[in-house]
Design a protein around this nucleic acid. Structure first.
Lengths: 195, 195
DNA sequence: GTCTATATGAAGATAGAC
DNA sequence: GTCTATCTTCATATAGAC
């Protein structure tokens, strides 16, 4: 809905980010114009520049806050003494968290090549911190003789790729609940890394 | 290298496709202009239209021939009576085939949303035929009591996501040979689906 | 078959009025 | 803070000469 005048600074900023998230996920960063984002928000294109310096910053901000939210949510889960329990917790957390934010997840994986080199480095370092979480669990399990993985780093990447793949096919309301999906993946992962 | 005149129809077509493959993979379909492709080939932009009707057909052609090549290569491998052997063969085949074509693989996964709806349907049906290959192996293994997977369709998607993920990190010349990587993944997959 | 030139439209970003 | 108007650049695709 277009308006003619007015001052709404308190909500326009988040609305711009929400519109960009949706449109970038649907059509891709390069294919979305600032005019499209403005139309979705209900302002003229020029008004966007009161909130963001440019299109690149908008993309970077979306990816950065997604990954920071991911790290924070994961850090809020207490680690136990049992690597098996930690791995199950990680599995279920990853599926649930990513399921709740399909657009942000999609952008964070698909739009890496549209970041400037400096922004790319910052995003990759956040992602690495998340991978290190899982790698730590696997290494503790190996040390305890509970897991047998020839290469914890590769196992980390394999598990994350497998888990993130859920987002490409799972839709709520299908024949399986998300909890059932979590259980199926946990079953495969548990066996895959078991000693 | 730019030329001024000349007739090279026999090689220009493939060169256009090769340039588009490389540039689309690197920067994304929407971010690459026909002028960039032309420059890479060494012709003017207008000349491209002697070979392709439009940019969309170029993208579709790249994805279609990649998937048809994938199906053909897979079909050339004989199926055995042993689901375990077939699964190992699939695992190694998938990693090797995808490793040899990183650009085409990247495009086939990332540019789906830039296809027209009709082209999207055709590409997805080719991809489904490939997934059905793996699902068939898993179902035969379950029927023979060799595999225990609660849901063969989900296991199919999980395994393919995991295997395709290799392309995001593996580079030849690192500390592991591709054969070693294949073995590590086969070890995890074998355990993940085992009864 | 490729060139140059161009039609037509849309992109990101900014300026200045209200 | 948002508007309208615009600068400048670039896009896809086509026309017609060679």
């Amino acid at each position: 809905m277009a308006r003619t005048q007015g001052s709404h600074s308190d909500i326009t900023g988040p609305r711009i980010r929400a519109a960009a998230l949706k449109l970038f996920a649907r059509h891709g960063y390069a294919a979305v114009s600032m005019r499209q984002i403005a139309r979705e928000v209900g302002v003229q294109a020029g008004a966007l520049y009161n909130y963001i310096p440019d299109k690149q910053s908008l993309l970077f901000g979306l990816m950065e806050s997604h990954l920071e939210e991911l790290l924070q949510a994961r850090a809020a889960i207490r680690r136990t003494d049992d690597p098996v329990a930690d791995l199950e917790s990680f599995t279920r957390f990853h599926i649930r968290f990513h399921h709740e934010r399909p657009d942000a997840v999609f952008i964070a994986y698909m739009e890496l090549r549209n970041l400037t080199p400096e922004n790319f480095v910052r995003i990759e370092s956040l992602r690495k911190r998340y991978e290190d979480e899982l790698e730590g669990i696997l290494r503790r399990g190996v040390a305890a003789g509970l897991f047998a993985v020839p290469d914890p780093k590769i196992a980390t990447l394999a598990v994350i790729a497998m888990l993130t793949g859920v987002n490409t096919w799972y839709r709520a309301g299908g024949r399986l609940s998300l909890d059932q999906v979590e259980t199926i993946y946990w079953d495969m992962i548990r066996k895959a890394v078991s000693a």
